[in-house]
Design a protein around this nucleic acid. Structure first.
Lengths: 130, 130
DNA sequence: GCAAAGACTGAGAATGGTTGTCAATCCTGT
DNA sequence: ACAGGATTGACAACCATTCTCAGTCTTTGC
């Protein structure tokens, strides 16, 4: 079984990550998870992100205001996200948008970093207008 | 006219940036330029990068060992680079490899950050083998 | 020429996100 | 209940980058 603080912490972090609908930083995740588990420390949030990254549960979504941001996506198939650098909002692109690039790269023996390119940076319509 | 230390510093930094054939960090640029102008300070290297970035003389090439790296490319036409995360070596892709992505993004009102996507991260053949 | 005004520089301090350390706490198997 | 091991939160340490500032250089007005 798996009771007690550890499990509650892990659940709080997972629930927080899943409930945030935009790209989030370690600090944001920590603050959101703290609402469920007030004693939860920042280190634990960083450690969760580290583990999730190893297990490919989250993807690196670049940086916003000099903070690294991540996003958790439930879709299993290979696809890409458009991440707004201002507000962090996420749009999903169906299918692999980089197939042609990957092909061109392979032609010179270069293997693209899929993890780094899962999220593509830019600016959403709303932030571009403002 | 434009004599004296200022000009010599600027030239040393430009010469250094142009002579480096791979993606370089602020520290690398500083060390290379110091061989031409030993008194040159690290702050000045950072300031040069800042100005070059504003003037689009360099492009952001991601990070390597938790240092931001840049590359200076003389080609005027729009194109992309493949940057090895291990050794920093650069391969050039002719033409715009992201046209289809840009189109898909525009369909949802999202404008891609061209500057950030000018360099695509990955691993070169040599480093992948090692 | 010369001096004052202003821009630039180098050294070092400050910043801040991230990582490391460590004693205390928790969980599991016995 | 207890021992061994893993996890945790608080805090220190790290380090790339930015900020600050007094000293220096460059230019401009005369």
């Amino acid at each position: 079984m798996d009771h007690g603080r550890n499990r509650r912490n892990r659940e709080a972090l997972l629930d927080a990550a899943r409930s945030i609908d935009h790209a989030f930083s370690a600090r944001e995740l920590h603050q959101a998870a703290k609402k469920l588990q007030p004693a939860l420390g920042l280190s634990t949030a960083y450690r969760a992100l580290e583990r999730w990254r190893e297990d490919d549960l989250i993807e690196d979504a670049g940086t916003r205001d000099s903070e690294a941001v991540y996003l958790m996506c439930a879709i299993g198939e290979h696809h890409h996200h458009l991440v707004c650098a201002s507000c962090g909002s996420v749009s999903t692109l169906d299918g692999c948008a980089l197939a042609s690039v990957r092909k061109a790269a392979e032609a010179v023996g270069f293997e693209l970093n899929d993890q780094a390119l899962a999220s593509l940076p830019g600016r959403c319509a709303q932030c571009a207008a403002a």
